[in-house]
Design a protein around this nucleic acid. Structure first.
Lengths: 246, 246
DNA sequence: CGACGGCTTGAGGGTTCTCAAGCGATGTGG
DNA sequence: CCACATCGCTTGAGAACCCTCAAGCCGTCG
């Protein structure tokens, strides 16, 4: 199995084989979790960085009266908050959506690996800033986009992020998340998610059956959803000048 | 005039007078902007970190069809993206809401000051993580909270953030932002913002006239808005152990 | 004085919600 | 092996929340 973190970071920098090995060494303590289990709970003290190796997870927050908002979705290769240690307590929870394989990375090993390689340090920065950009784009979606645009935009985003770690086949990818969770993520009711999916299917923009998503015409879905991929910053612009140095 | 960045960071760490002076030295190139002017535009190359000294500014994104979402609000003492340099282009714009005094801080001086003082480095981390937490809470608001809760929550957040930089008087503070901008921030129409304010006023939860906001009963507004301040991480817990070292 | 920006209110319509019920697949225990 | 519970998906009906369009008001400023 290829370390999905390596795969993801190489969308930004070209890594030497030593750097790749260093990143592999970080993945030591792993644990397997079932679907809809908590990884870290709101109020807990953060102990380590959680790196998703397999499966889908999420950040979420539950209000007192039970309303639940999924704040971000984590895919293989995603690190959940590389620097939470600075804060005393978690202000949200991390939970799995599907069954997951998660690596627990300690703070010292993060410090170590970034101290050893400037390129990895910069790549970690890139990963953090892109996560923040994704969070901002969710704000735009929730604030401005209609249900069809909102869902379409999410499909575009997740498809591109899955593609960046090699988890797509042509126009298809696994999509193992329930309509209820989609609703909690998009601020829509389950019922309305269902109707919106029906509409997107009727328009020929997506196919979604079982746990398989197909986007037959990606540009069409992009423009229907006002999706502009530039916020994902998948440009490997600096790599040319960075090749060779460590 | 006290540097509001110093004031803000001291909510997290206790700074020595050298550290305070170092932070003051960062504030060299300042520029004054009128209301509703752009500071940095979507697509631009980031040149420096913008630090707000006076006035209110915001991050925003405009969709092709004109819809506009205010993604975050910046108050005095806020730094706009301390590490944007890693990314090639801005994926959003920064603009003023009111007339502003803004310091342009160069990348080298950020690196310098964090290299000199561990406490400042940690405080900058804290500021970044709190910004991210605020962004997450906006996601929760837009996704789950009703208009009254959403606005009430924003008032609570901004009041606490203003208090952290000494910009409140008892139960009141300046609130110099238009209902149209409030709408763009909360994903609501101007008309509905107006009606929601009316409702909050009728419930005795806020007074808002001119550019002055009063929250007569803060706990009441908190509970009406499901506001839990823990995500702002205004606990100076580590300062005791950190006093003395640099 | 007239123009303008921001605030306020009314009326009608649209998007999304809640409640309710039914269907199909999966899994478990008697 | 079948009965039954459970979970996720689907659909209908009516209501709630929020939107758009439109107009009027108030203060400021040139």
């Amino acid at each position: 199995m290829v370390n999905p973190l390596v795969r993801k970071l190489e969308n930004f920098v070209r890594l030497s084989s030593e750097e790749r090995q260093a990143l592999d060494r970080v993945v030591q303590n792993t644990r397997r979790l079932g679907p809809r289990e908590d990884v870290v709970r709101d109020g807990d003290q953060p102990r380590h960085v959680n790196l998703i190796l397999e499966g889908w997870a999420c950040r979420y927050k539950q209000l007192e009266d039970g309303r639940r908002q999924v704040i971000s979705i984590f895919l293989p290769g995603d690190m959940c908050d590389p620097h939470v240690f600075v804060l005393k307590n978690m202000d949200h929870s991390l939970g799995t959506l599907t069954s997951c394989l998660i690596a627990e990375v300690s703070e010292p090993s993060i410090r170590e690996i970034t101290a050893e390689s400037r390129k990895i340090e910069e790549a970690f920065w890139w990963e953090m800033l892109v996560s923040a950009a994704i969070q901002r784009e969710w704000t735009v979606s929730l604030g401005q986009r209609l249900a069809t645009e909102r869902l379409g935009h999410l499909f575009c985003e997740l498809f591109m992020r899955l593609d960046a770690v090699g988890l797509t086949n042509g126009t298809s990818c696994e999509f193992p998340i329930t309509q209820a969770d989609l609703g909690d993520a998009m601020g829509l009711s389950t019922v309305h998610i269902n109707r919106t999916l029906k509409e997107l299917r009727a328009a020929g923009l997506i196919r979604l059956r079982g746990r398989q998503l197909t986007i037959p015409d990606f540009p069409a879905l992009c423009s229907a959803s006002l999706f502009d991929p530039s916020y994902l910053h998948f440009e490997r612009d600096r790599s040319a000048s960075a090749i060779g140095d460590s």
